[in-house]
């Protein structure tokens, strides 16, 4: 690929959290919420981040947004190390990257009018003021499908879908290159989700945005993503082109996760499918071996003693599994 320089690079990013110790207890080993995560996001591309709760996807988002700093590793945007930005440089960084939050009911300040919410980023960054600010706010609102007449209202006067449009307009106000979207549609009604997803797709095309799209819902990830990264317990276990990963997963976790996704049509029902056993452990005291080994139906002796390093499979993707080639295909019907 003779692609242009990536919009976002994560280079072996890890984040550890110190565990609170009890009054007289021994200090516990820190928890690795994110463990050596590396990927790139190209301009105009969507990287989907899939994983179950506690897999570290939200911590990852916070590190990309520089709301928290990695313990080790680097986040690079436009070749600059985000984790090493001086406080004075952070403001400028906020013009390059923005975020859309999960719950539009909680992420919009209830006491600020929609128009002011959309205009605030431009005011903070000194991009516009007075009458010009107003025109630009109305212009942005129109781009996300809100009428200028609604801008005087408070967030609670809008429906969930409209609120998420306000949040999108606010994120677009500084014309960022990258948007991190953390479960942007999961709090919305099913019939409204498509509107927001289509809007995000359109904006990507018209503005050349890069998305990091975080979701537990694999269907929405599949819709918007060009590439997909699957996370388990803080690490990426498989990353590659969306279609390849979702159609022919090579990591056993990806495969079991896809098998667990409810079918889209009753005709595709498979009784007694292979269910991912057990539940995600809490990440404390990971042993030496593969983090997925305790739940993996394919696990062998080697998996328990030696952690797999990500390696290229099929030329297009990276899989962290010793036996990726042996992972069985999805049952017919589940994925096309």
């Amino acid at each position: 690929m003779n692609a242009p320089a990536p919009a976002l690079i994560l280079d072996a990013v890890s984040k550890e959290f110190a565990q609170r110790r009890s009054l007289f207890g021994r200090p516990a080993a820190p928890v690795r919420a994110v463990d050596t995560v590396s990927f790139v996001v190209n301009p105009g591309e969507t990287l989907g981040l899939v994983g179950e709760s506690g897999c570290g996807k939200s911590t990852l988002a916070r590190m990309i947004l520089r709301m928290t700093r990695p313990t080790t590793g680097h986040v690079l945007v436009e070749g600059k190390r985000v984790d090493a930005l001086l406080p004075s440089e952070v403001l400028a960084y906020r013009r390059q990257i923005q975020m859309i939050f999960q719950d539009p009911y909680a992420s919009l300040n209830p006491r600020i009018r929609a128009g002011d919410l959309i205009g605030e980023p431009m005011a903070i960054h000194g991009l516009a003021r007075g009458a010009e600010l107003e025109t630009r706010v109305a212009d942005l609102a129109a781009q996300v499908g809100l009428s200028a007449a609604m801008l005087g209202r408070y967030p609670h006067e809008f429906s969930g879908g409209q609120r998420q449009r306000i949040a999108i307009a606010r994120a677009l106000a500084v014309s960022p290159r990258i948007i991190v979207a953390d479960e942007p549609v999961s709090a919305l009604d099913v019939s409204v989700r498509a509107q927001v997803l289509n809007l995000m797709a359109d904006l990507q095309t018209s503005r050349g945005l890069s998305y990091v799209f975080i979701s537990h819902d694999i269907g929405t990830v599949a819709y918007l993503s060009h590439r997909v990264a699957v996370m388990y317990l803080g690490a990426i276990v498989e990353i590659g082109p969306a279609r390849d990963v979702l159609r022919r997963p090579r990591h056993p976790y990806t495969r079991l996760l896809l098998e667990a996704v409810p079918v889209a049509h009753p005709r595709l029902r498979v009784r007694r499918r292979e269910v991912l056993p057990g539940e995600v452990p809490n990440g404390v005291g990971l042993g030496a071996g593969c983090r997925f080994a305790p739940r993996c139906p394919m696990a062998q002796e080697r998996c328990r003693v030696e952690a797999p390093t990500p390696r290229a499979i099929d030329g297009t993707r990276l899989v962290a599994c010793h036996f990726a080639e042996d992972t069985p295909d999805l049952p017919k019907g589940l994925a096309a």
Binding site: L65, M67, V90, L91, R94, R95, Q98, M99, F101, Q102, D103, A106, S107, L108, N109, P110, E120, P121, I124, H125, A167, R170, A171, A173, V174
Partner: peptide, 13 residues
Amino acid sequence: KPYVDAAQVVGAS
């Protein structure tokens, strides 16, 4: 509440 995070991401001091 997330709106505080949201304000910080937008660049609010």
